[in-house]
Design a protein around this nucleic acid. Structure first.
Lengths: 172, 172
DNA sequence: AAAATACTTTACATTTGCGTAAAGATTGGT
DNA sequence: ACCAATCTTTACGCAAATGTAAAGTATTTT
């Protein structure tokens, strides 16, 4: 359960483009420069965003990328989903079926249910935050309404450790 | 942003152990059987859970694994963190620094802030759900209070479950 | 048109996570 | 003691994600 590199960097690029306004344009080189990323990687990133309708591209001399819509009309759920795929796969149960064809908990799976609930919960948070919220001028973001924050990073971890992995996005 | 295999399967094993009660014991072979996983993989999973203090192991003939505490005392944040690492890395900013030594948004990073907020939000959800909530007998899990759900891929499922009897031996 | 600019696509190397396999260590029964 | 059951640890192969590289396509300027 963590943010993938594509999600992180892609969101950043989008925020940077949003700051340029709906008619401002940035080339791949510009963006790479601004974000401290390599040109090829930035290229891939913007390409994914374009294929998902979040930015529009213009080719040829003087070309570049532009945000596709008003930042207020782009929420983070759309962005994260575009870059990292769905929070919970539609084929969750076949993906995590272990050695069998079908998951042993095919029906009556409390784990799947609670994780589905979590996915919805996350979606709710992301949906009510837009790019516009991320480019407001204040030093600290004012998160929308009921964002009940909690101190993060405080679970005890006795020993040993492992890391979970991310997944990637796909687009046409 | 998705659930890793370790998180999914590890949580399932823990739930299965929780159903056995605080004095029920399951061997790796039993668990592999019950969960439809391979024996070596189950071994690794339970080993991680043990190192994180979520289960206790007993070696030798008649040995196996037992849940470490009352299911009511184990919340999902601890489980997910144990299996998949922190939602947001403490070294988030150096991990996602692009080509530079330090992230270009080192300070004043609205993206980092909102993702930190998301992590806290997720933690809040996971913290208020315990293993006990996942082994209740009702047809559908009753998620704790304010879980503002949104429709997503999780269909409600009927329930009729039984937990198989385990084997037992004495505790460590 | 030719050349320069800039996006587009495909292919590839590297790293990380997933899952398997095999050898080691500990306990209990005979 | 010895053997069998069972957890423990380490090492390995495979697949997916990360990031790079290079060749291709479109547009504008001269």
């Amino acid at each position: 359960m963590r943010i993938s590199a594509l999600e992180e960097y892609g969101l950043r690029c989008l925020v940077t483009l949003a700051k340029e306004g709906t008619d401002g344009m940035l080339s791949i080189a510009d963006m790479a420069q601004k974000e401290g990323l390599s040109v090829p990687y930035t290229s891939k990133l913007l390409s994914i965003l374009r294929k998902n309708g979040l930015v529009v591209a213009e080719r040829g001399r003087g070309g570049g990328f532009m945000i596709a819509r008003d930042p207020q009309e782009i929420d983070l759920f759309e962005v994260i989903t575009a870059l990292g795929g769905p929070i919970i796969d539609p084929d969750h149960c076949t993906r995590f079926s272990g050695q069998r064809e079908e998951c042993v908990h095919a029906d009556n799976c409390s784990v799947h249910e609670v994780l589905g609930g979590l996915a919805g919960y996350i979606q709710e948070f992301l949906s009510r935050t837009t790019l516009a919220d991320l480019i407001s001028t204040g030093p600290v973001i004012e998160l929308k309404p009921l964002s009940s924050r909690v101190n993060i990073q405080s679970a005890p971890r006795p020993s040993a450790e492992m890391s979970g992995g991310g997944m990637s996005a796909d687009a046409e």
